[in-house]
Amino acid sequence: MLANVNRATPYLFLAPAVLVMAVALLYPIGYMIWASFLDWNPSQRIGEAEFVGLRNYIYLLGDAAFRESFWVTIRFAAIVVTVEMVLGVGLALLLDRKLRGMTVLRTIFILPMMIAPIVVGLMWRYMYHPTVGTLNRMLESVGLPSAPWLSDGTWAFASIVIADIWQWTPFIFILALAALQSLPQSAMEAARIDGASGWQLIWHVKLPLMLPVLIVTALLRLIDAFKVLEVILVLTNGGPGLSTEIVALRIARTAQEFQDLGTAAAMSNLLLILLLVLTILMFGYTRLTERRAARLAAAREAEIT
């Protein structure tokens, strides 16, 4: 009897957390999945909405605007994550040394990440302003023509990419720096004695050893990039045209402007599925490396005994 109680104890302690999780996570997700099968506008209670089966999904797959939006999102995520990875890792490699004032410099580097996205959006909107914005004034002062930062489709897309890179490169930077600083120092010294130049050291030793951290970092950033909303909302609100309308923004607009909660929910689910695939890939990778480590440990064990 007593043993049974003891065995139940951990579950007893976990129960409140499970309850909170169920209410706070599973309930809204279930609600959203259910809503995606409804033709539902905000003036109706959910019970009054008409069940339409897969009609929302079928509509979305045929909707050129949604497909465009999906494509913009993928392009946006792929470009920002690639550039941020290159810049962030590059900066980390440059700043991974003992120099006076480096701590201050590092702190400054990670500041953008700490600013609220809405503020970032507003700040960049002022900088991108066609006449009084910092960027155009700078271009003019050196005699260059001003750029249509937010008024031309291609430029607008570039503008939101730049703002995102500005804000999120520090994230990659600090994780890459942490990875670098946990690398075995003596292996670096051994490589120097083995004759590796600075580049060879980075290419043959540092990067391969950082790879596990970098892959997880890239995936985390990718997931985040798919969901970015506030900065773009403030900067361009999706325009001009559909040039910067990423899926998250389209979801918000579908729900608020078009009053179509069912379609918005269906879109959210499609995004969720995409993110789920990415997450599974990430966990899959972690599991793979763990299993490999376990296998190596087992091999070593067998060797000793």
Binding site: P184, S186, A187, E189, A190, A191, V205, L209
Partner: peptide, 8 residues
Amino acid sequence: FQDYALYP
């Protein structure tokens, strides 16, 4: 090296 410093 004392800790061997092999490339993992």
